[in-house]
Design a protein around this nucleic acid. Sequence first.
DNA 1: CTTTACGTTTACGTCAACGTCAAGGAGGAC
DNA 2: GTCCTCCTTGACGTTGACGTAAACGTAAAG
Lengths: 132, 132
Amino acid sequence: MTRTAEEARTWTVRELADELGVTTRTLRFYEAEGLLRPQRLGTARLYTARDRARLRLILRGRRFGMTLAECREIVDMYDGAATSERRQLEVLLARLGDVARDLRARQDDLRRTLAEVDDVAARCRDRLDELG
Amino acid sequence: MTRTAEEARTWTVRELADELGVTTRTLRFYEAEGLLRPQRLGTARLYTARDRARLRLILRGRRFGMTLAECREIVDMYDGAATSERRQLEVLLARLGDVARDLRARQDDLRRTLAEVDDVAARCRDRLDELG
DNA sequence: CTTTACGTTTACGTCAACGTCAAGGAGGAC
DNA sequence: GTCCTCCTTGACGTTGACGTAAACGTAAAG
């Protein structure tokens, strides 16, 4: 499977939905919200590797508790990275900095949470040991 | 400020809400949902350090996209860690393991996301360099 | 004693993110 | 042809997590 072959591949709604664990309703909803713009083959939707990549980004954002509006901002940024307009690149770079900062804050948050959970687990084990 | 002094301190709805960046409506809602059980001074709510700790846990869960039901499970677990019933401790320990696994998966997810964001930012900078 | 600034409960409203249902088109199997 | 299955587009329903408004209590300030 060459690179071009992989990138030329397309998906139907069902294929893409099943692969990424969402319903077809979700895909249509995202399209109505302007997050995806699959091509059409007649009336049927046809998703490219690019659409698939966008969708994966969106779903990851959702897992982090982002709203669809925030997800859209992110995926649009990824698309904007190919521009050649100086001003747009600068704006984009600044936004990316914000996003990165936010992500790092989340990492810290997550680290603390995990440490606490591990701590509670340790206390549990101690109690169990005490109980023989 | 001794330890006991700090732990003996109480908060009104407004104080707690303002400090943790939520509305009083949210605190009352959480109470109605059984996530918080502040004492009463007459009819007024009085939150202890313990309530505050629970609330912080809940809010952190929310930031991670957890539902209130999931948050409740977590905070109840923290409370349950002091039990002396063997069976309950074992169940709790197992659940904690699940939670920890999930958290670690999220960490990986975050790491990948951050790497991608950094990558896009780097490509931006390259483009800017090319443009002089 | 009234005003002002809180607090309270109860009830209904809202918004996001879909689910669900109805009514039908397109294309293959038989 | 006629099923059958999958797809389509609306349109309305649902759920979670609050917001908002009404109607009232309370306690300190002037």
